[in-house]
């Protein structure tokens, strides 16, 4: 049975610390674009932690919500790409083939989650920062769309290793950079086709919701909603 990679994010546990954001930069060769470009809206964060205030001081609350590519089953980004740069791969991931992208940026418009980012310029890594680049991840050219891949390079490596050693992939052994870094383990990654995997069990949780579910994109990330505390004897 093919894999169907999915993720569950426990909003009870997410503290908004942004460790996932930096980890993603480190893993995926995401460039920093400079202050000037950041002020022009060109910062790239494949994963971002959305923060929403509710109420006013002192009755104020905050909601954190990490948003990354939802790897939708019916991904709106894919059909609109004229060159098949965005398409669905056999593991159910929204693959983005950088070499085939001509930069129409249509996919980013179609994506309701705004998780696609664009290389407005060729990225720069002043020497010797380039020595840090992950050799498993290609560096993107100007004019190319990019987005979260669920660390497809790690998936590929794990699958290859498992095949070479004639063993099955163990649930939890394979993690994308964000899940690996997350100090509170709010991010759980795994195979949704395996009913016993942690992520599959969390996806069935009554707390589980999907982001903008009503749009029908069938995202593969389950958000476990934040539960307000209440007096235990209130029940």
């Amino acid at each position: 049975m093919p894999f169907r990679w999915g993720m569950a994010i426990d909003l009870n546990a997410c503290t908004g610390c942004e460790a996932c954001v930096t980890a993603c930069h480190a893993e995926n060769n995401i460039p920093t674009v400079s202050a000037e470009q950041a002020s022009r809206g060109r910062a790239m964060h494949w994963i971002r932690v959305e923060r929403y205030y509710e109420g006013n001081f002192p009755d104020v609350r905050v909601k954190f919500r990490p948003v990354l590519c939802q790897q939708c089953d019916n991904a709106p980004c894919e059909a609109v790409c004229p060159t098949y740069a965005a398409h669905h791969n056999e593991d159910g991931l929204n693959a983005q083939v950088y070499n085939r992208c001509i930069g129409t940026r249509y996919c980013a418009n179609a994506c309701p989650y705004n998780v696609r980012f664009f290389n407005f310029f060729n990225a720069e890594w002043p020497k010797p920062l380039h020595l840090q680049l992950n050799p498993d991840v290609s560096v993107r050219e100007v004019g190319v769309m990019e987005k979260c891949t669920f660390c497809v390079q790690r998936i590929k490596a794990a699958k290859t290793a498992a095949r070479a050693e004639h063993r099955a992939l163990v649930d939890g052994a394979l993690q994308p950079a964000c899940a690996q870094a997350c100090p509170t383990s709010a991010i759980v990654f795994g195979d949704l086709n395996d009913p016993d995997s942690r992520v599959a069990r969390l996806a069935r949780s009554p707390r589980g919701t999907r982001l903008l579910e009503d749009l029908g994109a069938e995202p593969k990330i389950t958000y476990l909603q934040k539960q307000p505390w209440h007096e235990p004897d209130a029940y």
Binding site: Q37, A43, A108, N109, F120, N122, V142
Partner: peptide, 12 residues
């Protein structure tokens, strides 16, 4: 690069 235009995230 196309960055010389004013386009930005998410107004691509």
């Amino acid at each position: 690069g196309i960055g010389l235009s004013g386009k930005r995230w998410p107004g691509f």
